[in-house]
Design a protein around this nucleic acid. Structure first.
Length: 276
DNA sequence: AAACCGGGCAACCGCTGGCTA
DNA sequence: CTAGCCAGCGGTTGCCCGGTT
């Protein structure tokens, strides 16, 4: 039963990668291609576990990774997608070519989340990177703590589901599970697969009627995860009898995701009206 | 000049569903 | 059908570096 373990982790290196290790990894992947991470360290002559190799390649060495600061356009996109998808970093990353989920997650945690915490009204008004840095100087520290305590009592509690993968198959299989329908993510870093997943989500529609029910009874884990997958604010404007309208919104949501494949094209005007 | 502090980010951790022997 | 590994995910940690005192 089962398969042999990928590695024992005994005697393996950890921590930062050296230039030599990077070269070995790149050469190996150029020769044998991506995947088969379990066997890769042996082939490459690396004293790393396959998981570590995969992470290094995906987040740093991949040739299509875009270097440099996040642009204001990208920042804007991240803010909008996060308001729709929550902490689905991989899903957000797939809409930002050349950016990794780790990079976006770090950028969010170190820049955007703090700004939004301090001034939720600026959520859809991105600033330049330097400005956000200045906002977090020592003078604000005490104020931050006070704000956090104040917000703790007033801000909406959002259920954050654990990390998981959702494939098209699992969506089909678990079609009765509300959360699976919306909070999907693909297995590989390919837009095509993400798109096919979204198509599968379409097949399970209408799900916005379920959203309303979840909104009505947000106590269960299942319904909370569903509500979390969307921007809860716009649900406040929706009545139970407006399920048709919700279906329309769901279609618009998909359109937004499609627009993000072509940054700058129609996105601004569309997303502004959608998220207003 | 040195010590301290905080931000940024690469890497690790733990979990999950999918896949396969 | 089942057990257990694989691949991928989000959360967290800890090191490095630049700015401040």
């Amino acid at each position: 039963m089962g398969r042999t373990p990928c590695c024992s982790k005994v005697g393996l290196l950890r921590g930062p990668w050296s230039v030599k290790e990077d070269k070995l990894l790149i050469n190996c992947i150029q020769t044998h291609g991506e995947g088969h991470w379990r066997d890769l360290p042996k082939k490459a002559g690396l004293l790393r576990c396959g998981k570590s190799c995969r992470l290094r390649w995906m987040n740093y060495l991949r040739p299509d990774i875009k270097r440099g600061n996040i642009t204001s356009d990208e920042e804007d996109l991240i803010l909008r997608l996060h308001s729709l998808l929550g902490n689905r970093w991989s899903l957000i990353a797939k809409r930002l070519p050349g950016r990794t989920d780790n990079e976006i997650k770090n950028y969010w945690n170190s820049h955007l989340s703090k700004r939004i915490e301090k001034n939720p009204a600026t959520k859809d008004q991105p600033k330049k990177r330097n400005q956000s840095k200045q906002m977090n100087n020592n003078n604000n520290k005490r104020q931050d703590i006070e704000n956090d305590e104040e917000e703790e009592t007033t801000k909406t509690k959002i259920y954050q589901p654990k990390a998981c993968r959702v494939s098209a198959n699992s969506i089909k299989r678990n079609s009765s599970s509300l959360g699976s329908r919306v909070s999907g993510s693909s297995s590989h870093g390919e837009l095509g697969k993400t798109d096919s997943l979204i198509n599968n989500i379409t097949c399970t529609a209408p799900c916005w009627s379920d959203l309303v029910q979840a909104k009505e009874a947000p106590v269960s884990e299942e319904s909370c995860s569903l509500v979390n997958a969307c921007d809860i604010s716009f649900l406040d404007f929706v009545q139970e009898e407006d399920c048709n309208m919700l279906d329309t919104i769901f279609e618009e949501y998909q359109q937004l995701l499609n627009f993000t494949e072509y940054p700058g094209q129609q996105l601004d005007s569309f997303a502004d009206s959608f998220l207003a």
